[in-house]
Amino acid sequence: MSEQQRVTFNDRLLDLRFLIACLFTIFGVMVTITGLRATPEDIEKAAGVNISLWTGIGLLLLAGSFWLWVLLSPPQPATSSADLEEAAEHEDPWPSE
């Protein structure tokens, strides 16, 4: 990968890590807010634990780790399967002798 191609919005959309991060950020925020507004009955129902708050924080941590992963290794520019085949030939971890 010598040449740095520009990563388009399309490439980001095709990056599954980005999609997972998005969904769990939304879920995390929703569940955390629900947890912050939990009624005593809600807490009593879940054996005395504010489980929505804890789950919400957990979901945000999950989302955060995917954001971090996307940030640390950005998605490769989109390739058609034909390009990929070529790339796979190059990257083949088992070159024939």
């Binding site: 929703m30 569940v31 939990a38 809600d42 129902k45 879940a46 489980i51 929505s52 789950t55 919400g56």
Partner: peptide, 11 residues
């Protein structure tokens, strides 16, 4: 039904 309050319930 017995243990999960709203929020986690949706998940």
């Amino acid at each position: 039904a017995d243990l999960l309050p709203t929020g986690v319930l949706g998940v």
